[in-house]
Amino acid sequence: MSCLNVGILLFDDVELLDFAGPYEVFSVAADRQQPPPFKVFTVARQNWPVRSVNGLTVNADYHFSNCPTIDLLVIPGGNGMRQEITRPDVVEWVRERASLARHVMSVCSGARLLAAAGLLKGQSATTHHEVVDELARQAPDATIIAGARFIESGKIFSSAGISAGIDLSLYLVAKLCGNDVATDSARYMEYDWRHRHAG
């Protein structure tokens, strides 16, 4: 498999583990394989630090104007998602990047941004248990599945809240690189991954 660029969107009031969990999984998988199957980076709309929902400040690797090609687009959630779905430039950037990506992944309420970009039409998806009804109203032409750890629907992958993004990331590592690579990554992380399957 050729090296895939994994681009993780950041924004103010992003949920910390929503992006840090996938970042860790794909980075560990890359570090423990030769040649590395992933190159992981973060991207934000602005060229200044992003503040997470719990106060951690992060400098994104890229911003919208200089971001390289993204093969696997990761959209985390968090309280700031309510603002992001109202930003036309963010919605259009996600729509454009998703159209070019091989795989698109949301964590938690990040699914709302996929809905805003029209990416959930005719798809199945899940999200944080507190956001299920809201997402169903926002994406009436999608099948929103409450209680699923994560869902695979074509090239769209979505997970439930926060820690579920780790399980989905490991599932994608297994799908793209093989189960042994995912198992090795989980073992290194000392994460109790039980080879969960998509809903």
Rank of each mutant, 00 (worst) to 15 (best):
M1C: 12
S2V: 10
S2N: 15
L4R: 15
L4G: 07
L4I: 01
V6H: 05
V6D: 02
L9E: 08
L9A: 12
L9Y: 13
L10M: 14
F11R: 10
D13I: 01
D13C: 04
L16P: 14
F19T: 08
G21A: 08
P22C: 00
E24H: 12
E24I: 05
E24Q: 14
V25Y: 01
V25T: 04
V25R: 01
V28M: 15
A29F: 04
R32T: 09
R32D: 05
Q34N: 12
Q34C: 00
P35G: 08
P36F: 00
P36W: 03
F38Y: 15
F38V: 03
V40S: 11
T42D: 07
T42I: 07
V43T: 11
R45C: 05
Q46L: 11
N47V: 10
N47G: 02
N47F: 09
V50Y: 00
S52R: 03
G55Y: 06
V58L: 15
V58W: 03
A60P: 11
D61Q: 14
H63S: 12
I70L: 13
D71L: 03
D71M: 07
L72G: 11
L73W: 06
G77N: 09
G80M: 11
E84H: 07
E84R: 13
I85C: 06
R87I: 13
R87F: 10
R87M: 13
V91W: 11
W93K: 04
V94M: 00
E96K: 11
A98L: 09
S99N: 04
S99Q: 08
L100N: 14
L100E: 15
A101C: 14
H103R: 06
M105K: 01
V107G: 07
V107H: 05
C108K: 14
A111Y: 06
A111I: 05
L114G: 05
A115W: 05
A115K: 06
A115M: 10
A115Q: 09
A116R: 12
L119A: 10
K121L: 06
Q123H: 14
T127I: 10
H128P: 03
H128R: 08
D133G: 09
E134H: 12
L135N: 14
A136E: 08
A139W: 15
P140K: 06
D141N: 15
I145V: 13
I145M: 07
A146R: 10
A146D: 06
G147A: 05
G147Y: 07
F150V: 01
E152L: 01
S153M: 06
I156A: 04
I156H: 02
F157K: 12
S158P: 15
A160F: 04
A160K: 05
A160I: 05
A160Q: 07
I162S: 12
I162Y: 06
S163R: 06
S163Y: 03
G165M: 04
G165I: 00
D167M: 05
S169Q: 07
L170Q: 07
L172A: 05
V173Y: 00
A174S: 12
C177W: 01
G178A: 02
G178D: 07
N179Y: 02
N179R: 12
D180E: 15
D180T: 13
V181N: 01
V181C: 04
D184A: 15
D184N: 10
S185F: 08
A186I: 14
R187L: 09
Y188T: 06
Y188M: 01
E190L: 00
E190M: 03
Y191P: 00
W193Y: 13
H195M: 02
H195I: 03
R196E: 14
R196L: 12
G199W: 02
G199N: 03
